[in-house]
């Protein structure tokens, strides 16, 4: 867990941290690959929500370079299978996600990220 689909949806939400707060940077991660059922309809529905550079950046940081720099206009099954793998089959089990702006650390433990803020960060 902490799949890249989730990573692509989470921004730093510390009070006042509203710019350059996405994507969070991975640090000291343990990655596990797990097969997952391929659902092209789900992927097509989700593509409009993807921040593409954030996704390719995160994938490369985790050692996967299979995605093209730009979201291709033709989204055939071959492409969707690659996207499926990156979005849903790479799991970050341990490590930290760090806000590029305020440097808040969001620790990941046993696959569950702790996105709770400290008392002084909620304002």
């Amino acid at each position: 867990m902490v799949r890249l689909i989730t990573h692509n949806l989470l921004a730093c939400h510390v009070k006042g941290c509203t710019s350059n707060n996405f994507p969070l940077e991975f640090k000291d991660v343990q990655v596990v690959l797990r097969d997952s059922e391929f659902n092209p309809d789900f992927l097509r529905g989700f593509i409009p929500k993807i921040e593409w550079p954030a996704l390719t950046g995160a994938a490369r940081q985790l050692g996967d370079t299979s995605l093209p720099d730009q979201l291709p206009e033709m989204q055939d099954d071959d492409f969707l299978k690659v996207l499926h793998h990156v979005l849903l089959e790479i799991h970050v089990e341990e490590g930290t996600m760090i806000c590029p702006n305020c440097k808040h650390n969001y620790p990941i433990s046993n696959g569950i990220p702790n996105m709770l803020l400290a008392e002084h960060e909620i304002g």
């Binding site: 867990m1 799949r3 989730t6 989470l10 921004a11 569950i112 709770l116 803020l117």
Partner: peptide, 13 residues
Amino acid sequence: DLCTFDVTCNPWR
């Protein structure tokens, strides 16, 4: 995924 956070301080982008 499962995430720990308070829904009143949520990280949804």
